[in-house]
Design a protein around this nucleic acid. Sequence first.
DNA 1: CTTTGTGCAAACGATTTGCAGGATG
DNA 2: CATCCTGCAAATCGTTTGCACAAAG
Lengths: 143, 143
Amino acid sequence: MDLVAMISHKETIVQALKDKGLRVTPQRFAVYANLLSRQDHPTVDQLLQDLNQELPVSSQATIYTSLQALQAAGLVREVLLEPGVTRYDANVDRHHHFRCRCCGAIEDVPWTAFRELNLDHVRAGLHADAYEVTVYGVCDRCQ
Amino acid sequence: MDLVAMISHKETIVQALKDKGLRVTPQRFAVYANLLSRQDHPTVDQLLQDLNQELPVSSQATIYTSLQALQAAGLVREVLLEPGVTRYDANVDRHHHFRCRCCGAIEDVPWTAFRELNLDHVRAGLHADAYEVTVYGVCDRCQ
DNA sequence: CTTTGTGCAAACGATTTGCAGGATG
DNA sequence: CATCCTGCAAATCGTTTGCACAAAG
């Protein structure tokens, strides 16, 4: 990414935060920008390691509260695929997940990988309005 | 359920444990029988409350280890739909889940509610061999 | 200047573990 | 009787909270 693109990317992130009524602080920006830049679905601890690798950027408690704010604003989403571990995903467009049963890696699966499901037959009386598919298997590295 | 059915039900559970090479202890039996009898997907704490309601049956630590053993044997399964909460399900046949966004209730959705998905287009290189659908909405009681 | 965010450390809740005694095959 | 299980309490891990100070609008 060239300099101009980087600056405009930064502006896009700032704007996204402002649009949701969130104050733009260095910590919030760092958390959201980091999440946006990653393909995986890091835990709070992985975010903490990554953000503070060079120099201290944010404390653990602030990462938790930043994620709460970002989630309430609809900019990030939780991913729950292992007991006791909450992962975060900056991709809030609808999509599915793949989980490697061997190494635990999690990867996004595009919404278009499956034909749309019909929720009418879930059960009468329920207002089912959304869904997602979790796929299990073995990833390339583990075979 | 009449007496004969109850006894044969008990024998079925004992046999299931034995078949998996598990020792049949009162605690393990109680945990598994309780899970089999419920429609919901209890947490460890809910199991603990329920089992020890009348008289003490099992300690918390033993419920944890029993569930581990039952899970390793393939008799029960974890259900992860809320952060920090692990629920358990004795239904190990393939099925989907519904989660009420209002009260958090979880309910099984029969496998046949959807037509079979084709996993061929998940991503080249992945060996995808299983999946399940999580449906979100509002349950009858919450409307 | 008022409101909201940050960092630290303590608190908390769920789960795991070490160990001594007890039950199972 | 050797092995595995149970219960208790302490330890651990992820997350939340209280509070004093700092930054944002």
